[in-house]
Design a protein around this nucleic acid. Structure first.
Length: 225
DNA sequence: GCCAACGTTGGC
DNA sequence: GCCAACGTTGGC
């Protein structure tokens, strides 16, 4: 096997796909109808839709070794913390919804670093978005696990952001615990009742409402459920 | 390692 | 554009 040249293991992500652009929130609903807008432009009020404004995120990566084409996919929060500047690009996302969420991220926003596909899945720490979406170069690299032959340099499909380690949570918050809260909140109401981690389980990059984010953070100071 | 959930592909 | 087959994610 190729002696791993690189250092960056690709973080997570998902599959592959197609389409070229897809905006996540294309749900531009048509709201009020008919206003006859005179001349031309008969678009359905594309911009009037309420673009959900998220400012908190959850991003998944695998903290344990797993080989794909001879390449180790391991990239846990400790790996991010160990890098120069504790910063890295979140490459390798190959799912349109996840990509679209990354494109909505703004510099300075916070994201949970979630450990997936491992012994103990859950939220490990917090990171900050330090560079907004730009072209993911790994899509053009034939040697990369996430190479996408269908993506052309003059019209790249995939984006990534840069993230910087902020801190570990005071205690690791396991998925099993979040799930208990989720179920509880779903029946009696509470901040985690619609958390994407459970309603959109396979999404590797997902938005959190402020309430969800704050609630998860508040668990740091509580006893494990 | 199993497998459910779900996204993607491709025939028609 | 439907939908069955297929592939991937990721918990358990």
């Amino acid at each position: 096997m190729p002696p791993m040249k690189r250092v960056r293991v690709s973080k997570k992500a998902a599959n592959s796909g197609k389409d070229d652009d897809g905006d996540a929130v294309s749900s531009a609903k048509v709201t009020a109808g008919g206003k006859r807008k005179a001349k031309g432009a008969t678009k359905e009020s594309s911009e009037s839709a309420d673009p959900p404004q998220y400012s908190r995120w959850l991003m998944k990566s695998e903290p344990e070794s797993r080989f794909e084409n001879g390449i180790d996919m391991k990239f846990g929060i400790e790996d991010l913390k160990a890098l120069p500047d504790q910063t890295d690009c979140w490459d390798g996302v190959r799912n349109y919804q996840a990509r679209n969420f990354m494109r909505m991220m703004k510099e300075g926003q916070l994201a949970f670093f979630y450990h997936s596909n491992c012994k103990e899945p859950g939220v490990a720490g917090v990171m900050k978005i330090v560079k907004e979406a730009y072209v993911d170069h790994t899509q053009f690299d034939k040697k990369d696990v996430h190479f996408d032959p269908s993506s052309k340099p003059d019209n790249p499909k995939w984006s990534m952001v840069d993230v910087q380690y902020q801190r570990m949570l005071k205690r690791f918050i396991p998925l099993s615990e979040l799930k208990k809260y989720h179920l509880q909140h779903r029946s009696k109401g509470g901040p985690l009742k619609d958390m994407a981690l459970f309603t959109r389980a396979r999404l590797s990059v997902q938005p959190l409402t402020d309430e969800e984010f704050d609630f998860v953070l508040s668990l740091e100071d509580k006893e494990p459920l």
